[in-house]
Nucleic acid binder design. Structure first.
Lengths: 211, 211
DNA sequence: TTATGTGAACCATTTCACAGCC
DNA sequence: GGCTGTGAAATGGTTCACATAA
């Protein structure tokens, strides 16, 4: 059973909405209501949810608590993943204390940088290691996921070093550059400047009179 | 002529790659080479590029300098957009000094928060205003784009206040929540925890023996 | 011969429309 | 009657295959 990425993304959103509805003590919710919140079609919501089994009640809707639990199970993690954060620039440091970046599913286990002034210091209670130590430390601490917040020209080198550990499975990169990662490693990229460029492109297009 | 979002995203990537190739003094590039860097198909690159007119030379490839200029024109901004950054938590403060978040196409003109301790102080050389002042300040400074780095429960309120200015056109939100924005305003959301959840979901799936 | 540009074929995802159950 | 679940249709995006031009 392989799930498409857009579906996973929406499932995560449903999860968040269900949590809110549950906090507001709403008992039942319709696909219509969820769809309105996310500005998508109700049929999309139903298709997504039915993909993981019949969970709603026809003529009634979805029982909030039950659906919330159901989605939580779909997204459940087999463990709390250990993360390594590489690059203690402004963004990297911010992430060590960014509240939404806290979860029972993962936690930063170690931070890395290549600036001698930063090595050995503490960041958010975490000891900073030199990037060269990644192969050893990732293995020792079983860090399977990397969060990359290094400048673009340093990113590929970090990936290579991390891969040497033999335990790397996934990367969440904020570096605005194209990375080569060995096949089984999953790469997700969040590129702030790319998103901004897209936004501005469509703003410009919208402004055109013939739109 | 409406361009699909995946196409715009790739165009932005081509732009970055072309800049690099130009710095390396490479004269000519093939769709094949660009495709390999981005791990996409060469036909995709050709389709994207041909969308904006014939720019390559058959049997030869694309002239790097010419193509770079061409793409720069496609992405060109009619002006430098004024941004308002709302929410001076760790992420917001980081963005005020994050090097990749600098461009000739936009610049932060003002920052906002609702914490009295922050009002009036300087952040990255910018005076911090109270969020309640958004309607006035956005209008005065002609800030058409908002960067939202506030906690999820404050995000909608910020959107509402900003919209009151009458000049709001686009929002880049980092807040992990669903927002309602009036029709003509464009909203792009970057949600770190959602990306992380997606990554972990597929890591879990990959680990399954029957994959 | 080589590599682009592009209609046509293909594939994935969304939306419709209605049968099925509460 | 109301709302879910789901095949079927529609849409949107990607890839193929080849004519075309350097």
């Amino acid at each position: 059973m392989k799930v498409s990425e857009p579906t996973v993304e929406r499932i995560v959103q449903y999860h968040r909405i269900l949590r809110q509805l549950q906090e507001e003590d709403q008992r039942v919710v319709s696909s219509q209501q969820i769809a309105e919140i996310l500005k998508i079609k109700a049929s999309q919501v139903r298709k997504d949810l039915s993909y993981f089994g019949e969970i709603g009640k026809r003529g009634v809707g979805y029982h909030v608590k039950r659906l919330y639990k159901h989605i939580a199970d779909i997204l459940a993690s087999p463990k709390s993943w250990n993360l390594g954060l590489v690059g203690l620039g402004s963004l990297g440091q911010a992430l060590t204390r960014y509240p939404p970046f806290r979860s029972s599913k993962y936690h930063i286990e170690a931070v890395f940088d290549n600036d001698p002034a930063k090595i050995g210091r503490d960041y958010g209670g975490l000891h900073c290691f030199h990037s060269d130590e990644m192969p050893r430390i990732l293995k020792e601490k079983n860090i399977e996921v990397l969060v990359l917040t290094v400048p673009p020209d340093a990113a590929q080198d970090c990936v290579n070093k991390a891969y040497k550990s033999g335990v790397l499975k996934g990367i969440l990169s904020f570096s605005p550059t194209s990375l080569v990662v060995p096949k089984p490693v999953l790469l997700y990229t969040m590129d702030i400047s790319v998103e901004m460029e897209k936004l501005l492109f469509y703003l410009k297009e919208n402004g055109r009179s013939d739109e």
